[in-house]
Every structure is written in structure tokens, then in C-alpha cells.
Nucleic acid binder design. Structure first.
Lengths: 153, 153
DNA sequence: TATTGTTATACTCTATAACTATA
DNA sequence: TATAGTTATAGAGTATAACAATA
């Protein structure tokens, strides 16, 4: 009870989505990762070799912010910067073998998270939910796989 | 393309929910309100006369944080603190007439927001989405009408 | 002069803890 | 001494702008 009875879909979406993001953050914290780091790791794996500028643009964040995120992943050997030989200003981002292993663990955590969040729905209902959310996401211009808050995966 | 193909419901929920929260924040900014202020205003309207401690507990935030939120609403005459006569330490929170008017405007904004977010779904689909989200919210222990991030309405 | 990545700075939001006034 | 509310302080997280290296 707050603004409306019953609450609209948008409020429910924001509330459940916030809850989902918080629970996911807890899970990946066990891997010593933050949601933005997970998002970056996944993007580098999916589109390797891109410059920090390009990745920052894809994630919708200023390049300066990417520096710290890449540093954290590179310090742990999960990604690496490779200098472009013809233009030494560019740092191409690549995932390492350790990074790939970590991403597999993240995937497992994500599936567990998904199962826990949707445990009250049966298989058909989960598929219905996913289809409806995908429609909204596409209509609202959200890029597949990219979290608009960059804090979630 | 990031972690999974296709993305799980949890990721979609977090992404679409974050988008919904951001768009709502933009809309209420036109009323010079932040989402936490809206959530507090709605709670005071729904449960008037409670102490700041009680409201803070309901919203899941420390009482110290409530001070600034109440100040902002009280300075604009939307809510008021009424001192308890028998125990002068207590400040009962009440909404004013201006606050009630403002809440009506917030409700209108919320319905517009809802319509814009779900414009790609027909009426039956919206109802299906709302039912599925309500089930998840109840199962996950979310209190109806209370945003777990306190930033949303 | 323009661009990539980096660093410096400042701002916002939040929580924890110290403080006051009442009891 | 205990509690409600407040204030002070500090810590994340973020964006903007200045900077160094390279083109």
C-alpha cells in the first residue's frame, strides 16, 4: 500500500527488479565480483579486442570509469589490455583463460539466481514472463544483455 | 549478448526494472520529487501518525536517513511533524492537504509511466505480467507497495 | 591539433556513530 | 539509563574536467 491499489506493472517491475539485482550482487560477491565488473567481463568475452572507448560507449559509461573496472579485472588476471602496434594509444581488451573460467562460474551463479527468483513459477509461466519482459525491453530500446544501470548484469 | 543466450528472467527483470525506475525518476523530477521522497510521501499517506522510527523501519532505512527526507517534504508543506504531547520525543508524521494533492499528481504521472512502459502489451498481457510479478514479489518476501531499494516508488 | 587512456577533483547518496532532548 | 530524533563524519560510487602520450 503506497500509491496505488493494486500497484501498476511499472512499480512491480522496479521493485522486483531491484530485489533481483540486490540478490545477484550478493551471489557474485562470493566470487569477489561486483555487478558492473560482471557486466564488463561478459561484454569483453562477447566482443573481444575492442578499445576502452568503444566498450565504454557500449556500456553507456564515461571512459574514465572504465579504467578502474578494467584495472580490477586485469589485476586478477581475468582480462588483459593489448596495445595496438599501429596506434599505440589504443588498448584492445581481451578475456584470459582465467576470465573465461570465472565467467563460467558466474553463469552457474546466474542460473541458480534465476531458479531461486522464479521458484514460484512453473516452466510455462517462466517462459511467458521472459517473453513479456523481452517485448518490453525491445520496445523500450534496451540493448540485449546490457544492463541500463551498469550495476547489474 | 553478455552472459547467456537467451538471458534469464532474472537478468531481464533487473534490466527492465532499472529502466523503469530511471524513467519514473525522470517523470517525478518534473514535480521536484525524488523516488525516495515519493515512497515516503505515499507511506505517510497510507499510514499516518507513525513515528519516524516506525516509518524508517517500514522502509528499511536508518532513522537518520529519514530526517533529510522528511525535512525536504516538510519544507514544502507536503507533510508535517506533530509532537506527541505525552512523550515529546516522538514526532508523528502526517500528510497535509498540499501533500495529498501532490500525491494525486504523482499517481497521474505513475499511470502515464505505466502506460508508456507497457505500451507494447495488450490489456490481457499486462494483467498476466502483473500477476506473475506479484507472485514473485510475494514469494520473495517483498512488502506490497514498498520498494526494496527505497529509491523507487 | 585531435584522440586514447589516465588521473584529479568534486559531487551525491548512504550508513555509522556521536550528540541532544526528553523520558 | 534508555529512547527519539538529529547532526557529524566518513565511505562508496559516480561524473566532469584536466592531463600525458601518441597520432
Amino acid at each position: 500500500m503506497a500509491l496505488e491499489n493494486p500497484p501498476g506493472s511499472a512499480f512491480l517491475l522496479a521493485a522486483v527488479g531491484s530485489h533481483a539485482a540486490a540478490r545477484f550482487a550478493e551471489r557474485v560477491a562470493d566470487l569477489d565480483l561486483t555487478p558492473p565488473q560482471v557486466g564488463l567481463l561478459g561484454l569483453i568475452a562477447a566482443s573481444p579486442g575492442q578499445s576502452q572507448q568503444a566498450v565504454a560507449q557500449l556500456l553507456g559509461m564515461p571512459p574514465s570509469r572504465l579504467v578502474g573496472l578494467v584495472d580490477a579485472l586485469a589485476d586478477r588476471g581475468l582480462v588483459e589490455r593489448r596495445r595496438n602496434r599501429t596506434d599505440r594509444r589504443l588498448h584492445a581488451l581481451h578475456i584470459t583463460d582465467e576470465g573465461t573460467e570465472m565467467l563460467a562460474r558466474v553463469g552457474k551463479v546466474g542460473r541458480e539466481h534465476d531458479a531461486a527468483l522464479c521458484r514460484s513459477l512453473d516452466a510455462a509461466e517462466r517462459e511467458t514472463l521472459r517473453a513479456l519482459l523481452s517485448r518490453i525491453a525491445a520496445d523500450q530500446g534496451l540493448r540485449p544483455g546490457i544492463h541500463p544501470g551498469y550495476r547489474g548484469v
